[in-house]
Design a protein around this nucleic acid. Sequence first.
DNA 1: ATGACTTTCTTCAAGGCTTAGATTATCGTC
DNA 2: GACGATAATCTAAGCCTTGAAGAAAGTCAT
Lengths: 393, 393
Amino acid sequence: MSRSERKTVRDLRRGNRAMLLRELYFAGETNRHALSAATGLSAGSVSTLTADLLAENMIVESGQVDSDGGRPRVLLRVNPDYGYVVGVDVGETHVRVELFDLAMTVRASAYYALHTARHDPELVARHLLMGVDSVVADAAVPYDKVLGIGVGVPGIVEGGPDALVHATTFGWDSVPFGALLRRGTSLPLFVDNGAKTMGQAELWFGSARDAGDAVVVFIGSGVGCTLVTDGSIYRGAGRAAGEFGHLKIVAGGRPCRCGGQGCLEAYVGAESIIDRAGITADAADQEPTLARLIREGSPVVEESADLLGIGLSNVIHLLNPERVVIGGWAGLMLGGAQLARVQASAAANTMSSFPPVPIVLGRLGADAVAMGAATLVVEELLRGTPASIPATA
Amino acid sequence: MSRSERKTVRDLRRGNRAMLLRELYFAGETNRHALSAATGLSAGSVSTLTADLLAENMIVESGQVDSDGGRPRVLLRVNPDYGYVVGVDVGETHVRVELFDLAMTVRASAYYALHTARHDPELVARHLLMGVDSVVADAAVPYDKVLGIGVGVPGIVEGGPDALVHATTFGWDSVPFGALLRRGTSLPLFVDNGAKTMGQAELWFGSARDAGDAVVVFIGSGVGCTLVTDGSIYRGAGRAAGEFGHLKIVAGGRPCRCGGQGCLEAYVGAESIIDRAGITADAADQEPTLARLIREGSPVVEESADLLGIGLSNVIHLLNPERVVIGGWAGLMLGGAQLARVQASAAANTMSSFPPVPIVLGRLGADAVAMGAATLVVEELLRGTPASIPATA
DNA sequence: ATGACTTTCTTCAAGGCTTAGATTATCGTC
DNA sequence: GACGATAATCTAAGCCTTGAAGAAAGTCAT
C-alpha cells in the first residue's frame, strides 16, 4: 500500500543519479545543459553527478558541438564499453545467445538448434552456458566486464532465485531453470518470459518507445504479451501477467495445448493456424508453412486476423493502452499481410466511446527476444543500486 | 519513461511526511515507535514530523497505552475532524450524497431518485449540488473544512478539468459533467467512474485491503471493474481502463447495449440477466426481480455465474491478480448465491500452471460507490501536496 | 587583434534533511 | 526509593541540492 521509498539524503542522490543515467542512456548523446533541463536538476548537481559518472568510467565525453556564440557543449554518453550484457532467447526450436555492449550493439552471437521434443532442461542449460562462454570469447571481452545474463524462456517464470519455469507447451513443469544455470555461472542472472523480454525491447528501442501504457503482443508458435504500465512492464502478483494467448474468445471452442478450450492461442498461434489449415508440419517447418498459407491467402489466416482483433479489443477494453504492438515471428508475418484486417476487427469490437488505439507492427524483428533479455541486465544497472560494478572500470 | 521525481531535500521531506501520514491513516491508531518501524524512518524524524502534523492539527494524540515497564506510548491518529469529504454516487436510478469525516464515518447523507430516462445532466448536477449543501448543513460542519467532493458516475470519465463523461447506457455522450458542477461549487472536485470508486473503497477498507495487485469487479445494471496494480488504481492511457463488461466472451453473441455483440455485460449485468429470463422490468424493479430469479434458481442465473467465471479467467490470465473481489449490488446478490459456481468456472477456465486466485465478495455493500468517491479526496490529502489546507485548522 | 557578448560548465556558501547517539520522561519492580 | 526498561526528544554531524558567482571557451563586430 505504501510505496515511495527514498528516505535519507543519500537515497536522494542515488535516485537522482539513476534518473540522470537513465536519461543519458535513452537520449544517446547529450550535454550537461540539456540533462539539467530534462531531469529538472540544477546545473550544479548535474555537474557533480556527471563528474562522478565520468570518474567511474560509466559515461564518456564524446565530442563537442558549437553553440551559437558561446562555450561549446561537451557531449556525454554512456560508455558502451563500460560493460557488456548477454541476452539469451530460449525458443521452442533454438537457443540463441548474444553479447551486447551497452549501446546494444551485437558483439558476438551463438545459435543452437533444439530438436523437437528434446527440451531437456539440462541440455538447454548446457547449450546456454556454452553459448555464453562462446560469445564472451568471440567478442574478446574480459569476463569481469560482463554485467550479467538475461534469459527469455517460454512459459511462466516464477520469481525467486530458482526461477521456476512453468511451460506446459515446452514440456517444462516447474523446472528450476535459474538454479540450473546458477550451477554453471556466477554472473548475475535474470530469467523472464520471452514475450516479456521482447516487449521490453520494443518498449526501449522499438515501436513502443516512450509509451507510458502499451500492450506488446507476441505471436510465435504460441501467443503471449507484455503489458506496459507507467512506462515499465507489469508482471502481476506472481509474475504471470500477460497470458494473452489463453484468453477465452470462443466459448467451448477449439481445445488448446494448454488443456483449455477456446483460447486465443488455439486460433492465432502459428502452430494452431497451421493445424487448422489441415497441415501437419514439423516444428522446424512452421515458418515456411505459415508463410505459404499467408501467401496463398488461406481463409484460416483471415479468420485468425479477425480473432486476433477480437482478442486485442479485450485487452484494449481492459487496459486502455495508448498503443498496441504486434511482434514475434508469426505476428510479424501475420501482421505484415493482414494488419488492416486485424485493425478493422479490433475497431469493430471496441466500444465507440473508446479512443481509437493504433495497432502497429514491432520494429525490431524476431531477434528482439534476446535483445530484450539483455536489457533486463541494463535495467538493473540503470536502477543505480550499488553492486554490479565490475572490478576494473 | 523516467519516473521517480524527488529532487531536492525539501521534496524528500514531503515524501516522508506523506508516507507517515498514509501509514497513520491506514493504521488507524499507532504510536511514534511503531511508525518508526513501519516507515523505516528514524525515531528522530518521526518525532519532528509528527510534531509538525500535530501543530497543523492534522493528527491528534488519542490516549496512551502502557508498555510493559517503561514510558507509556502516546497513541496518535489522524484527526477525524481535521476536515470533511463528500462522496457522491451517481447511479442509474439515483444520486446519493454522503458527507464523511476523515475516519470515513458518515456524518450526513442525502438521496435523490432519478426517474428512468430522465438523466438530464443539468438535473443530475442540480441534485448533486443541492445534496452537497444539504449534507454540509445537516452535519453542521463549516464549509471551509470541506476538503472536496468525489463523484462516481457511470461510464468512462476523461481526465481534464471538464471531466467529460461518456456513458452510452446512461444517455450521456461527452457530457462535461465536471464543468457543469464547477459552475455550482468552488470545492476541489474529483470525478471518476463509479466502478472505480467502489474499487478504491474495497481496496482501502474492504475485501481488497492491503492487496498489491487485485481486480475488483462491479456488477450493477451494467458491469465494470477496477484494476489494482502496485496498490493503486490503474486507469490506463485515457482513464478508460477496466471496461470488463465489454470483454467479448461469446463470439457473435447477444447484442449488448453498448452496440457490440457478445459482451460480458450482455449476459451478467442485472439488466441482461432479467432480460434473458424473459422478464420486462422497470429500472426501479431490477433489484427485487433479480432477487426473485436468484431465489427461484433460474437457469439463466447459473449460466450467468458460469460466464462470469469465464470473464474472470480472462482477467486472471491477463493480469495475474492476487485476489478478485466481486461487488456492486447485483454482484453481491449473484455472488451471495452462486459464488462457488463462479469460482469453479473461473478455475476450470484458468491454466493449471496458474496459481489459484481467491475470488471473494465485497465487504462494504452497495454504498461503497459513494464512500470510494470520497476517498478520492482523501487520497489527494494523503499525497501531501500542499494546498487543500483549510483556513482554520 | 581586441573587446563585448554568449553560452556552458564549475565552484562554493547556505540552508535543509536524516541519523545516531545522548538525554529526558515515565512507567514497573525489587 | 533506586534501578532498569521503554518511549520520546534533543543535538551534533554529515550529506545533498540549490543558487549565485565565477571560470572557460567560443562567436562576432569593429
